[in-house]
Nucleic acid binder design. Structure first.
Length: 779
DNA sequence: GTGTAATGCTATTGG
DNA sequence: AGCATTACAC
């Protein structure tokens, strides 16, 4: 623990001023890498040292992980145990807790369910169908986006339907019923005791607007409010903050307009640009010194962002060394891009002793991870992909979570629909449909119908009735214990009792095994939660309030709002792969920014609108400024999309970079018909066209050698690179199954599967990377 | 009601 | 190309 008093010495002058200016409205405009987290951390620590009760401090961060890390740092500075009493987390997690505490004011159950995007889209799709609307016109995704935007602008279903402008727009676009879907959607959410993500903010606004006593209560609780990444707040969040801060006016927002990249989900850059209008007496601090990156990187980033019109004036500079030039890499195909990136990483590790964990590969869309993964795997470099299908969205994980959700809130219709017949228990589509219709007719939940099936005249057989009441009895037996039982024990009982664990265990295909493992992993997490007490997401326990025991209910309240970005870093040394959006707030010594092509980055959806293009440019700026030491840019001339090859042009953003920061091995980046950009190294010899006959000497000999030299292959236990050229019709020999013939192949090496007909044991479906297989003959 | 084959849709970005 | 939903056979 540090001695008190001197801890602020670790800040520069502006940082220190910003940290100690605790009273009144404050805006900290913080350039990339200027130490804003540090300022926020020290500021809160300073408040506590001054004697401010941590219960009175609120800090809203962009991810829960950021909150967790900041809390840890504050605890280190301040010492003692008080740090845990700060209210910290994302908007969604903090206000979902407040909504649970005040649930009765809004007529919601305390254990309301949080619907994720998939749940809410599925509900919207149901409503569209029930209303007899054409799904081709009323695309669920589009309707969902419209509803989401409305909620984030605090526009209720009624105002939506009563707004002449909107009604006119919807009519003109041939979709006059969106308002109706919105109204029904909200009604159904409420009936199910569920909120979608946007409701967590919307309903917080309703709560604060309609209940003055509640507003005053939280105004007085949150005497000091901090909002990180303020440039990415939406209107709904803006109003919440404004309301809460109205009484004490100690509001500190931190952000960088140049890094606003979430307009697509309602973030309003005007919130930060107009902060001064809302609080004319504000103090502004500009953090302009970058401590993160080399001069080259900072200058390159500046040269790009100056192409944007609307921004707050600031000049980011750094005292860091010049550093290496940014290298630009051209590849023939997306796959070759992956190979070259992997190869360059290999060189970095050899020549600069770089660790995997110091390296990030950033891309615009999740789909781009595939070619990067392939390249890394071949070079035997271990990596982790963030984002994409998150753990909690995997089918098997969501299935079990749906049981948990239903146990906690039997009104949760989306969960009910998901698992009522999984594992199959003879309650099929027709029965479910009858139940849903009856529920709708009586305006009660499907669960209520099932619970009282004898009271309703539903046309179903006695056998099916029995199955339904068995199901109801099972869920109820878990439900009565949801409050007090040990969450892990209860979770295990549910997983076993519902038959899901057995179902997965019996599936011996490679995918089935992995599904089983995923469920086990979920249960392990639940176990940790059970043993570790309440979570970091829970609000501090108020004085006089009894300490919360871990329960399944608490667990579910937590994980509904967790994302991949919140995962604790593991200690494994792995390269990070993620979208640029996901990289926000992170930094790496080595950054590879890939896929710099027109219509990919900037995205095809953005090129026709100035505002959208500026957002893409800010995204590019964010990507560049993640790098501390060295930065590599790359693009491919052709790329597979929807399974077919398309031609690409280099991104305009490359042309916007100050050429002096770039390393071209020849004359530099010119017009598209010139070919000045050479690869970093000799190109990896790769077949561009799939139709080429399999190479006689096998896949790049060097690759194999490197793969053998390395220690741990990311996934495979065996070096099966000789199976890359496996083709249908080949004769093979298996360690255990004997000799056989390849019947079919699918997927991409080494994650491909082969169906092989063995002479002795019949047909087997094998995952190539695990198969102990030899090629015996070509035919 | 259940399991498999065929179709069709998707890939901005995410709490 | 890969996945989810739908169509169709048992």
């Amino acid at each position: 623990m540090k001695n008190s008093g001197n801890f602020l010495d670790g800040l520069n002058e502006v940082q220190r001023k910003a940290a100690v200016h605790t009273e009144g409205p404050v805006m900290i405009v913080a350039g990339a890498g200027s130490g804003k987290t540090r300022v926020l951390t020290f500021r809160i620590a300073h408040l506590m040292k001054k004697g401010v009760d941590p219960f009175n401090i609120l800090a809203l961060t962009f991810t829960n992980k950021a909150a967790r890390e900041m809390r840890e740092r504050i605890v280190k500075i301040v010492g003692g145990n008080e740090g845990k009493n700060i209210w910290m987390g994302t908007f969604h997690s903090v206000f979902s807790r407040i909504l649970r505490a005040e649930h009765d004011k809004l007529g919601y159950p305390k254990n309301f369910t949080i619907y994720d995007s998939d749940d809410s889209r599925s509900l919207i799709r149901d409503i569209i169908r029930e209303q007899g609307l054409d799904e081709k016109i009323y695309k669920p995704n589009m309707v969902q986006a419209r509803i989401s935007i409305s909620k984030n602008n605090l526009m209720s279903a009624s105002s939506y339907n009563n707004n002449p402008q909107i009604q006119e727009d919807d009519k003109m676009s041939g979709k006059p019923k969106i308002g109706l879907v919105y109204r029904i959607y909200n009604r159904r959410l409420f009936k199910a005791g569920a909120m979608d993500f946007d409701d967590l903010l919307y309903n917080t606004n309703v709560l604060l607007r309609d209940h003055l006593d509640i507003l005053v209560k939280y105004q007085d609780r949150f005497k000091y409010i901090h909002v990180d990444e303020y440039q990415d707040t939406n209107f709904s969040q803006y109003v919440i903050v404004k309301q809460l801060a109205a009484r004490h006016r100690n509001l500190c927002v931190v952000g960088d307009d140049a890094q606003s990249i979430y307009a697509f989900r309602g973030a309003n850059i005007q919130n930060i640009l107009n902060f001064e209008k809302d609080y004319p007496d504000l103090q502004t601090f500009k953090l302009e010194q970058n401590y993160r990156s080399t001069k080259t990187i900072v200058e390159a980033a500046n040269s790009v962002i100056k192409n944007n019109k609307e921004q707050l004036k600031k000049t980011v500079w750094t005292g860091n060394p010049e550093g290496d030039k940014i290298r630009v890499l051209k590849a023939l195909t997306d796959n070759e891009e992956g190979h070259q990136v992997a190869r360059t990483i290999y060189d970095l590790k050899m020549n600069e002793q770089a660790y995997n964990r110091h390296i990030a590969i950033l891309y615009r869309t999740n789909a781009q991870s595939r070619s990067m993964e392939e390249g890394l795997r071949k070079m035997n470099i271990s990596y982790k992909v963030y984002g994409g299908l998150s753990f909690y969205q995997r089918k098997e994980v969501k299935d079990l979570l749906s049981y948990f959700r239903l146990v906690i809130n039997p009104g949760d219709e989306e969960s009910l629909k998901r698992i009522i017949n999984y594992p199959t228990r003879g309650i099929g589509e027709t029965t479910l449909h009858k139940l849903l219709v009856t529920a709708n007719d009586h305006d009660v939940s499907t669960w209520t119908i099932m619970e009282n099936i004898q009271d309703f005249s539903v046309d179903i057989t006695p056998a099916t009735r029995k199955r339904i009441s068995d199901f109801v009895a099972m869920i109820k037996s878990f439900n009565i214990r949801a409050h007090e039982a040990n969450p892990y024990d209860l979770g295990m009982e549910i997983a076993n009792g519902c038959g899901l664990l057995k179902e997965l265990y019996n599936d011996k295909t490679p995918e089935g095994v992995s599904r089983y493992e995923n469920v086990q992993e979920l249960l392990n997490g639940l176990k940790e939660f059970s043993e570790g007490g309440t979570s970091f997401l829970a609000p501090p326990t108020q004085p006089g309030e009894e300490e919360k025991k871990p329960s399944l209910i608490e667990y579910m309240a937590d994980i509904a709002l967790l994302t991949d970005a919140d995962e604790e870093d593991d200690s494994r040394d792995r390269v990070s792969l993620m979208t640029i959006h996901a990289s926000k707030g992170l930094e790496f010594p080595y950054v590879f920014l890939v896929g710099l092509e027109e219509n990919l980055f900037p995205s095809q959806y953005s090129v026709n609108s100035r505002a959208d293009l500026e957002e893409e440019r800010r995204l590019f700026y964010v990507a560049l400024t993640r790098a501390e030491k060295r930065l590599f840019l790359s693009f491919a001339e052709t790329r597979y999309r929807w399974g077919s090859l398309i031609n690409c042009e280099p991104s305009r953003f490359i042309g916007e970079l100050d050429p002096g920061c770039l390393a071209f091995e020849e004359s530099g980046f010119k017009k598209k018909d010139e070919r000045p950009i050479r690869r970093f190294k000799e190109p990896y010899e790769e077949k561009v066209f799939r139709k080429d006959p399999p190479s006689k000497k096998g896949p790049g000999k060097n690759m194999v050698k490197l793969a053998q030299a390395g220690k741990s292959y990311t996934e495979s236990k065996y070096d099966n690179s000789h199976l890359k050229d496996l083709r249908v019709g080949m004769q093979v020999e298996h360690d255990r199954f004997g000799s056989g013939k390849v019947v079919s192949l699918e997927g991409i090496f080494p994650n491909n599967k082969a169906i092989i007909e063995f002479e002795d044991v019949g047909t087997k479906n094998l995952l190539i990377k695990f198969a102990r297989l030899k090629i015996v003959a070509e035919q």
